[in-house]
């Protein structure tokens, strides 16, 4: 009957010794980066022993929360503006910002036959609703508007536009068929390196300003080993492979 107690003691010892070395880093992550972040966090835990605790949300909300004392140590933003703004307000560890991914915009439909010849489906105009992310708040939405303007179909599309509050909701509108097609992030419709379901047109990068997604260490993370380790890990080859496999580019 002594065995359980010994096991328990060993377990306690293991927990104590592990926690002495390993730290936890609180990471605020843009919603469009949810899937890659989960894989990166897993690999990071395995390779470094630290734990990355991710919260997913919109950059605008994170900005408000960070300004008001949220305990995040690293921010993986969906844009370049939010980290820059935080940096200007002295809420970051300055000089730690870098672009961890460049988003790719894709016109996507859950219907496998709808988008056969790229952008021409917009010109044919034979659909009811076109979903985009809110151009005012979401970088993917602003890029989608730029593409519509570039194709000179923005006026024609105006009455058909429905806006998701973020790119995740925009995807939801299209995947449930409530909007026949929409501009979403390539990362959302990519499975194992290619478009998973439906039909799509990958928008050429030259048609809109690059969707740069920047990461930065926040004031709370300054001098924390796990925060610095996570940022380094994000720049490493393993993380880059994961990021690329979801259809992002790396600068």
């Amino acid at each position: 009957m002594q065995t359980p107690r010994i096991l328990l003691a060993l377990l306690a010892l293991a927990v104590v010794s592990a926690s002495a070395r390993a730290e936890t880093v609180q990471v605020a992550v843009a919603a469009n980066f949810t899937a890659p972040m989960k894989l990166i966090a897993e690999a990071f835990a395995k390779d470094s022993g630290h734990t990355a605790n991710a919260s997913f949300g919109s950059s605008g909300k994170f900005y408000a929360q960070i300004k008001n004392g949220a305990p995040f140590e690293v921010l993986l933003s969906a844009d370049a503006e939010t980290p820059a703004k935080l940096e200007a307000e002295g809420l970051t560890q300055s000089g730690t910002g870098f672009t961890y991914a460049i988003g790719t915009l894709v016109l996507w439909s859950a219907d496998p036959a709808l988008i056969e010849d790229g952008a021409k489906v917009l010109g044919r105009n034979k659909f009811r609703k076109l979903a985009i992310a809110n151009p005012k708040t979401a970088p993917y939405g602003a890029a989608a508007m730029a593409v519509l303007k570039g194709l000179a179909v923005d006026q024609m599309m105006m009455p058909k536009l429905v806006q998701g509050e973020n790119i995740a909701q925009t995807y939801q509108f299209v995947s449930t068929g409530n909007a026949e097609l929409g501009f979403v992030a390539l990362s959302q419709v990519t499975k194992d390196g290619k478009i998973g379901e439906g039909s799509a047109w990958v928008v050429p990068a030259g048609m809109h300003d690059p969707i740069r997604q920047d990461a930065v260490i926040l004031k709370n993370g300054e001098g924390k080993a796990a925060a610095a380790a996570f940022m380094e890990y994000l720049k490493g080859d393993k993380a880059k492979d994961i990021i690329r496999s979801f259809g992002y580019q790396i600068p």
Binding site: A64, K129, A131, N134, T137, V162, E165, A179
Partner: peptide, 20 residues
């Protein structure tokens, strides 16, 4: 779907301002 005049109600408008 945040359409002005059809579905963009006050609470959504406030949310947009905060997000922006």
């Amino acid at each position: 779907g945040n359409i002005p005049g059809a579905t963009r109600v006050v609470s959504v408008q406030i949310y947009d301002y905060v997000e922006a």
